[in-house]
């Protein structure tokens, strides 16, 4: 039987008719969510600065606390709701990185503590570490060479 339309034509039909994201709503939600999470981070920073901690300690403690908040909200089944509302506003802050580690760990607990929790923990966050660390090594190498040359 002869084909009615080509694949290309069909894809065009689909693209034309497919319901699009509510971009304005999504951008607004991302802005609010991301902004709010970063404000919390700022408050944590200010609190620890007041204790007289040095810059690096403040930065480390802030990231530990933000990671904890992300993990905790994931554990009590709330972070996915924040993500559904805020999209990138929830996934780009470090709390989202934490969510991406805790959520598969929880999900795959039933497959055991080694191959489930242990192995699947980095299902989504693994690539972030792989590319983050690898690019830092490349960056470090370039910096090292640049230092020798200059």
């Amino acid at each position: 039987m002869k084909k009615q339309i080509s694949k290309h034509e069909y894809q065009k039909m689909v693209d034309k008719k497919a319901p699009g994201s509510h971009i304005v709503r999504n951008l607004f939600a991302a802005f609010i969510t991301g902004g709010a999470i970063c404000s919390v981070g700022q408050i944590v920073m200010l609190v620890f600065k007041n204790f007289g901690a040095d810059k690096e300690t403040v930065a480390s403690v802030t990231s530990i606390i933000m990671v904890f908040i992300g993990a905790f909200l994931t554990g009590i089944n709330i972070y996915d709701e924040i993500g559904k509302f805020g999209g990138a506003g929830a996934s780009i802050p470090i709390t989202g990185f934490s969510n991406s580690i805790v959520s598969p760990a929880m999900e795959f607990k039933k497959e055991g503590y080694v191959m489930g929790v242990g192995a699947k923990m980095f299902l989504i966050a693994g690539p972030v570490l792989v590319y983050g660390i690898f690019s830092s090594v490349v960056a470090g190498l370039l910096y090292f060479i640049w230092k020798q040359v200059m």
């Binding site: 802005f31 902004g35 700022q42 996934s91």
Partner: peptide, 16 residues
């Protein structure tokens, strides 16, 4: 805090 809100929000907008 306001500055953190604005900058963090804007970075997330790029992601969205």
């Amino acid at each position: 805090i306001l500055k953190a809100f604005l900058l963090g929000g804007c970075i997330c907008i790029i992601g969205q």
